[in-house]
């Protein structure tokens, strides 16, 4: 089950909410949509789920065009909208049965799927409770149960873990990961650790434009700038800047040196290293030669946070 998005543009008045976005998603991929608020994540999802049409461009779900085969496309998709709207005057069981009926389930298969989803999402203890009386975490589970009732091949989840406590977040992430093996999942979030924990691929959107596309590791490799190495040395030097720095400058590929602290003979120094270079061995050999003691050596790798920050601020 693949999703193909081509040159998608959505205008609200004069403003482009989404500008010329193209991407593909394949079966078994869990695609994370990242972007600041108002970047166009939700708009893109609303278009794929046939809630609103694009201004231009096309979307195909499993080869079916969303404009021409809207009903067939909607049959294949399970959707959890932003803010998770629910009928607050219904109880969980009635609501799930209603949703299942709208997906064409009847009789035994309806009951089987509703029970199955209540078990998977941990809703059995609240089956008769009105949704309006439930906590946000439980409502989120109802929203997820609703999205997965009809065993959709494509799951589109707009901020699936918002409002959940840390334990529930882990549960839901595991559930998504499990489902993602056989299905196509698109989820949006602005929690970066979530993307690292669940997604096999990341799209970063900023101001309606696609600014990055790749696995979390790829993005970290591609967008890291200068790497840095923090070392803590015990030396006999009284003035590290005058006595240690000139020696360290002899290491090739070094682009900057900063003294972070100097206390009781231990100096913490940050070394800025050119992109893609590793100077740890050189530092070690120099320390041995100079009789410095390395107390700590830490390489700081670019995090997804930094990649995100770099791509979404001007």
């Amino acid at each position: 089950m693949s999703i193909t998005v081509r040159n998608l543009t959505k205008k609200y008045g004069d403003q482009d909410a989404v500008h010329d976005i193209s991407f593909d998603v394949r079966t078994g991929e869990i695609l994370g949509f990242l972007g600041p608020n108002g970047a166009g994540k939700t708009t893109t999802m609303k278009i794929i789920t046939c809630y609103m049409p694009p201004t231009s461009g096309s979307v195909e779900v499993d080869g079916l065009d969303i404009a021409e085969k809207s009903l067939d496309v909607r049959r294949k998709i399970g959707y959890l909208p932003e803010m998770n709207p629910l009928y607050l005057d219904m109880n969980v069981l009635d609501y799930l049965e209603f949703s299942a009926q709208l997906h064409g389930l009847r009789g035994d298969s309806l009951r089987r799927r509703v029970n199955e989803m209540m078990r998977v999402c941990g809703l059995e203890s609240v089956r008769q409770k009105d949704i309006g009386e439930m906590s946000k975490g439980f409502r989120q589970r109802v929203g997820l149960a609703q999205a997965m009732l009809h065993e959709p091949e494509v799951l589109i989840l707009d901020e699936p873990t918002s409002g959940l406590d840390p334990n529930q977040i882990v549960e839901i992430r595991n559930l998504i990961k499990e489902l993602g093996q056989a299905k196509t999942v698109i989820l949006s979030t602005h929690i970066l650790s979530e993307v690292q924990a669940t997604c096999s691929r990341v799209l970063i959107i900023n101001e309606g434009r696609l600014v990055a596309d790749g696995s979390p590791e790829q993005l970290q490799r591609e967008f890291h700038g200068a790497e840095s190495l923090t070392i803590e040395l015990r030396t006999r030097a009284k003035d590290p800047v005058a006595e240690i720095f000139p020696k360290l400058r002899g290491i090739p590929a070094l682009s900057g040196l900063t003294l972070l602290s100097h206390e009781g003979g231990a100096s913490v120094i940050e070394l800025e290293v050119q992109k893609g270079m590793d100077v740890r061995e050189a530092v070690f050999r120099m320390s041995v030669a100079e009789d410095w003691v390395i107390l700590e050596m830490r390489r700081r790798v670019t995090t997804l946070e930094e990649v995100f920050h770099k791509l979404t601020t001007n």
Partner: peptide, 14 residues
């Protein structure tokens, strides 16, 4: 207002 229309119209319902 509550957004449930989005839920309803993204299901295979005319």
């Amino acid at each position: 207002k509550s957004g449930t229309l989005e839920l309803l119209t993204t299901k295979p319902v005319r």
